[in-house]
Design a protein around this nucleic acid. Structure first.
Lengths: 341, 341
DNA sequence: ATTTAGCACTCAACGAAATGGAGTGCTAAC
DNA sequence: GTTAGCACTCCATTTCGTTGAGTGCTAAAT
């Protein structure tokens, strides 16, 4: 659909705009080494590109800036993946060389590194509980009335919750319950735990112990609360360095959104796997209609485990970020697989 | 030192300024109900107050604003603790009515509520490990090479860490080690664990198992990492609503600081207990030289467990915030004491 | 038939000058 | 000791001209 020359020009404009954040004019394009036509010619092409909806003019006598559609074309057809730079690669390598003993450390640290390398905001979702199974269940009494329930997943992910022991339950009863639960629940995927709890365990439990409803309710609550993945955020203040958010109100609405975990998770909902780019209004959330979100899932054996994402202005360094996310999601998958049996 | 009238005027100026964020003039003070003198009289007093360093003039023909010293006097002698408003009290009550099963929930939620009620930024430090003792140690194998170490404190606080099992250690060995550790370490305060590990356990362990150094190193790492308290942050974006931070650069330096956990903890270092107010340059960190930080410790049986704090502009609603922190720190102490044996 | 040079035109951005108004300090009267 | 009056200051806001980057169109050049 686009001539070779038009693509070159579009590419040049977007590249320039990403660097400068200012409307780019025909003259400056012509001065670049790669497009050798005169400003007048370029102006003509630019007018055509604008008609096609790929470019926009902030006002009559200004240069052009890419439209959402323009960015989309750029991302789909034009962008060159720079690969990961030497310096960045080194940083990532030293980062993974450190001993990471718990996955929250890995994920959180990954978020930090990402935001540092890109100067954008990074959002990382921990492993989703859907795809994981319960490995072990444990109760540790703290005193007469309360105990700590510990849930271990086959990924090595651990959660704990302090619970209050219903009256009339003895230590012996507790031990029985724990044994029963481990018998029945080991290897069961988390999303099934709830139904197994009701169907298989309820009856059996009632034989051993009275008041089992209380305990069941507790377990259910503990485990379902468990399912929500953890969100790690880093570099939110980087948003403020972008000239498009020098307006405090815009900045505030975005930063405010970033503080709401619920919304963040919503952002990541429809994720088909692989790398996905959502540009400007392609995002459903109004607060980030001026932003682009690039997400990647990290997976193991075909199962998506979690998601990492970069949020920046629509004028984002797509090439760099995509390469980086690609690289990192592979590395994280590698790390995670060490815990996976 | 100050006459009654001067105090009234100072109080009125600071009150007005806290509300309006704009220099307040003699006329507007005179119009308030509480100070019945004419603008001219008030002007004279204002000049005196300025000489004493309690007020400042941004420029010759502007009203006065409080200086750091002025705020200090206000906080020390003038401020009226409003108590906690009906609405706020209701919110807090419903908040604590919810079942909170893990302390991280309580603390994190408290941070959220605080920032919502005040429209400032809240920072809450979780219980410090100094004052707590180890209750139980547990190892749960995940597969041949890794296991999850679980550490339970007497407060009900639980931490876990995935560790890699050194080669040449059998399941049997592991069980022995765990038993030994529980024997020796139960009831030991965290800050002593390290030394006990070396002095008492090292020798004994070497009898049972080879390669014990690896395990000891692991445990040591696991437990010392454990000691750093967790930081919860909420409402950082509220900073942007304050007119004094409409300048993006200032805002960025503060938000950037808030993202660095290390710095946050540094903020809370010298904490004598009770409620403490640090105004403007009284804070050592340069980034918040335009902010005030109000902190309160929550404690149990005289021991300080953790700290909650509110960060806002120097022009902060001191009365309201102090009352609120007072109220909340008591309530949190109450909650925490439920877990304490 | 493209491509390019030339030219008139547009419009945001920048800066200087004009205006308005809130607030002060001082003096003199109460 | 308190207050009214007045001249003065200085910031904030507006107005208005200037500048310059950039466009669109037309006509010439290739």
């Amino acid at each position: 659909m686009l001539s070779e020359r038009q693509r070159m020009i579009l590419n040049a404009i977007i590249d320039d705009y990403i660097r400068s954040a200012e409307p780019v004019g025909s003259r400056s394009i012509s001065k670049r080494g790669d497009v050798t036509f005169s400003p007048a010619t370029i102006r003509n092409e630019m007018a055509d590109l604008e008609e096609m909806g790929l470019l926009e003019q902030p006002h009559t006598s200004a240069g052009r800036i890419p439209s959402i559609k323009g960015y989309r074309y750029y991302v789909d057809h034009l962008v060159t993946l720079d690969g990961v730079g030497d310096q960045d690669a080194r940083k990532l390598r030293t980062y993974f060389a450190e001993k990471m003993n718990h996955w929250e450390g890995v994920i959180g640290h990954a978020a930090t590194i990402l935001s540092q390398l890109t100067n954008y905001t990074s959002i990382v979702l921990g492993p989703e509980m859907f795809s994981t199974t319960l490995k072990h269940f444990q109760l540790i009494p703290i005193n007469d009335v309360s105990a700590v329930a510990i849930i271990v997943a086959n990924t090595g992910h651990v959660e704990h919750r302090t619970i209050t022991i219903p009256e009339g339950i003895s230590m012996d009863d507790m031990a029985k319950i724990v044994n029963l639960l481990n018998d029945k629940l080991s290897g069961v995927p988390f999303y099934k735990v709830k139904s197994v709890l009701h169907s298989e365990i309820a009856k059996e439990l009632s034989r051993y112990v009275e008041h089992c409803e209380d305990i069941l309710a507790l377990l259910e609550q503990t485990i379902t609360e468990e399912q929500e993945p953890k969100v790690f955020l880093s570099g939110a203040s980087n948003m403020l360095t972008q000239p498009e958010f020098k307006d405090v109100d815009k900045a505030k609405s975005i930063l405010g959104m970033l503080e709401e975990t619920q919304l963040l998770m919503q952002l990541f909902q429809s994720n088909p796997g692989g790398i996905q780019v959502k540009i400007g209004t392609e995002n459903t959330l109004e607060a980030i209609n001026q932003c682009s979100l690039i997400t990647a899932t990290y997976s193991y054996e075909g199962r998506s485990l979690g998601t990492i994402g970069i949020l920046g202005p629509t004028r984002m360094e797509y090439g760099k970020v995509i390469s980086l996310l690609n690289y990192l999601s592979n590395d994280i998958a590698l790390m995670m697989s060490r815990w996976y049996k």
